[in-house]
Nucleic acid binder design. Structure first.
Lengths: 333, 333
DNA sequence: ACATTCATTACAAACGGTTTCATTGCAAGC
DNA sequence: GCTTGCAATGAAACCGTTTGTAATGAATGT
């Protein structure tokens, strides 16, 4: 590969001049510029980013840590991050962490060893658990989607509690009183938030919350199917299931089907996230829209701000959600 | 950030010794090694990857170009690539190209400007169209999934023609004779391959191929829904739909439902890819399993070989597919 | 005619490591 | 006691760019 020296020699100038031909062409005389560009073209010269970045001490790269890249919701957030990244000429290193603390710690180290300028974390683990210095450490870090807005670093997500309350309110408005809850993993902040929101609406409506009607399992279709099986076997009088993700709801639909329920007549099922497949379920899923792409976009914008300004904005963006009414929740007579 | 100089000074040795403490500790005496590591630890020294990579003239990074990261099939391939990448200590830059030639060209340039060591392309565009030197250029390149096995560079995928023929054979074996085809985008190699496989089985069985029963549209649920609407409006006597992807099939199920078909009794529908959601459709989708993760793993392994050996293996891996029989295809009486 | 200014370009240092080669000191062999 | 060999370490070059500073020469002003 030709390098700057070669171009300089061919054009009869110094390497500095070649460099300026790219970075600051107005500083060069018409003729020199032309000569340099011709030489570069002839030698097919492409400046080495490696050398450039080394000198600039920047990587122009942001690390995105995803618990599971094959999860459609995360994939959509990454898609939003991407969009803003290319706009701002950043590259994205994507790491599928499998929600593993050790791998996430290595990820954070990539900033300290200057392999990346900053980290966007889609997982729930806060920076303080990922770095020996805990709260003290000040690397560019943004947490998205599974944001816990108590930390010192910026977060982007939705108000899970309010969104869950909204859906619960809707179920109540449709006449449901005995509502089962198909929760995700019990120890997750999102799960607790959404459960809290669910209870909020219940108590607001004066409907007692039934601890027995809650089943926890993985945030997946298989998890939803298992949880629904257990719950439906245990409580036969439920009129609706409040599912904490669309995938859980899709699993629940399968389970209810297999149990002989006619949907949505015998049982109403609500989802959460609004993934594309929900629209194509039978029955089409009533759910809560979560602006996944937009969350990614905002997260990356925030990251860009931090990297440009070296400042750490203390923002906790809560993007708006929406109730998406389709057919999986039925009004009781 | 502390650098090698500081550690050297504190430990009372030269920078070279500190460097060796990491790269070749056996060369150092017990006492020096200990002193150096203690000093490094005290200063929280982390070697700058940027400097290391610059000197090594490697990036330890592979670019993955994905037409659409939010597509579950591609996401699973990326997941497989990831797995092998971490094993081999490579980082992945993921670029969502939107199947755009200009963006892909920029991606390929990343190798020439040493931002990445190689490129894995999940899109259909071959390297020869992405580089001014066309066939001549020899950058580490692997094409996966949408592989066109005619090129000079390695590819990993399935035998689309054979897999499609297998599914068509199955439909025929279930007694179907009037089979509609919901194809993806007409100009794609995969589409043509799968269509060819479909025809292969038909002619093998002596069943005439009906040009009129083919509808092209996007490889998406919306595309499948549209195509199915058009086809079902035009030809009311079909007993089965051969869909070129699970997403298309899912869209078709919706369309058939809305048209009043009772599935699978009135109409059989087959998919392709075996995405997770297919299992949760109503009815559960009969489809062709495509080993997406494995395709990613093999692609990345190949890339590692190329990067290690500087050789360009002339392999075209065809991984095995499987018929996944569920309920969306019914046996005709 | 001389000082001043400005545009243009070259020189060399710097970025933070790694690695080659040279040097030192010590132990073993004769 | 002198040579030889080896282990341990240091000095310095190097990777390919950018950029601050200096140098050059032409143009301008008085």
């Amino acid at each position: 590969m030709a390098q700057i020296r070669d171009v300089a020699k061919l054009a009869g100038v110094s390497p500095a001049t070649v460099s300026r031909a790219y970075s600051n062409p107005s500083k060069l005389s018409e003729s020199t510029l032309h000569r340099v560009l011709a030489a570069a073209d002839e030698l097919k010269y492409k400046p080495s980013s490696l050398a450039q970045l080394f000198r600039e001490k920047r990587t122009n790269t942001v690390l995105v840590m995803v618990p599971d890249i094959a999860n459609v919701l995360f994939a959509r957030v990454v898609s939003g991050i991407e969009r803003v990244a290319v706009e701002n000429k950043y590259n994205l290193i994507v790491s599928d962490t499998g929600d593993n603390a050790a791998i996430e710690t290595v990820g954070v180290e990539m900033v300290e060893t200057s392999r990346a300028d900053g980290v966007i974390q889609l997982g729930e683990r806060p920076l303080s658990e990922l770095h020996p210095e805990g709260e003290q450490c000040a690397i560019p870090f943004v947490q998205a989607i599974s944001a816990d807005p108590r930390g010192r670093y910026p977060t982007v997500g939705i108000d899970d509690r309010k969104a869950a309350a909204m859906m619960a309110r809707y179920l109540l408005s449709q006449g449901h009183r005995r509502i089962g809850v198909l929760a995700g993993l019990e120890n997750r902040v999102v799960t607790q938030e959404r459960l809290a929101g669910f209870k909020d609406s219940l108590s607001m409506a004066g409907v007692p919350f039934d601890e027995e009607a809650v089943e926890y399992d993985a945030y997946s279709m298989a998890g939803g199917e298992r949880a629904a099986m257990r719950l439906l076997a245990r409580k036969r009088d439920l009129t609706a299931l409040f599912c904490m993700s669309d995938e859980i709801a899709i699993g629940a639909i399968r389970a209810a089907h297999d149990q002989g329920f006619a949907l949505p007549h015998d049982l109403s099922i609500s989802g959460f996230d609004n993934i594309e497949f929900g629209k194509y379920c039978t029955p089409p899923l009533t759910t809560v829209m979560q602006p996944a792409e937009q969350i990614g976009e905002v997260a990356m914008s925030l990251m860009c701000d931090m990297l440009r300004g070296q400042t750490m904005p203390q923002v906790h963006e809560m993007l708006p959600t929406e109730l998406v009414v389709r057919d999986s929740v039925q009004k009781l007579p």
